[in-house]
């Protein structure tokens, strides 16, 4: 699925360049569940953004399904994000003015579906995450766990090949964390997704097939 070769990302700051990723070489096969751990500032989120076609590397390459992301124009990257990659964020990132169903529909807007198809698929996705009764609720009317379920439904409604989750349980209590992880694991198994989770939480990381540790921009395998 993913092939990373000599991937380097540097940010220019007033104090000089900071190396977030340092010649990372990595392969992630299709259908694998990977947890990425590491200290704050170690480069976890930057790596996730590279995998999600949100950021371009300073040097090196990222290949997804045989296509090199770093060489693509922005419009093609947007298309890949729209069809192939699903995102789940720590802060849920739902649009506060839209209902749960409309939030899920936003992920289908770039696909050019008809209104009725969009609604049907959004409802089905919300029912799958257990929120069939909350279609017309706004984010402010939902609990943190429910909001994250809406975010997961939004990520999965387009049937992506990859699901990237950045601290998906970071804002949740333990019980809700476990519920969300069970949901993600279930979807991963059922949908055959490649699931990559960035987390500080060892309990979450232990659920993954493979654990990577990222420190000072360098990746090591964690047994």
């Amino acid at each position: 699925m993913y092939e990373l070769s000599e991937l380097t990302k540097k940010y220019e700051t007033k104090r000089g360049p900071i190396s977030a990723l340092n010649k990372v070489t990595l392969s992630i096969p299709t259908g694998q569940m990977v947890a990425i751990q590491g200290p704050t500032g170690g480069g976890k989120s930057t790596l996730l953004q590279m995998l999600g076609a949100l950021e371009r590397p300073t040097s090196g390459t990222v290949t997804l399904g045989g296509e090199e992301l770093s060489a693509m124009p922005d419009s093609r990257l947007a298309e890949i994000r729209a069809r192939t990659i699903g995102f789940v964020f720590q802060g849920f990132n739902l649009i506060p003015t839209l209902t749960a169903q409309e939030n899920v529909e936003t992920a289908l807007a770039p696909l050019g579906l008809s209104n009725s198809d969009r609604r049907l698929r959004a409802r089905a996705a919300l029912e799958k995450v257990g929120l069939g009764e909350r279609l017309t609720h706004h984010p402010a009317e939902l609990s943190g766990g429910q909001q994250q379920r809406v975010a997961i439904a939004r990520a999965l409604v387009k049937e992506p090949k990859v699901l990237l989750a950045d601290e998906p349980t970071g804002n949740l209590d333990e019980q809700t964390r476990d519920e969300i992880m069970e949901l993600l694991e279930g979807l991963w198994r059922d949908e055959g997704l490649t699931l990559i989770i960035v987390t500080h939480d060892s309990a979450v990381a232990k659920r993954a097939e493979r654990r990577l540790y990222l420190k000072h921009g360098s990746v090591t395998e964690k047994k």
């Binding site: 990132n93 936003t106 992920a107 770039p110």
Partner: peptide
Amino acid sequence: TREFGTLKAIGWSNGA
């Protein structure tokens, strides 16, 4: 900013 960043992350084009 976060709203538009999220929309772009889930595949919305600049034009949209």
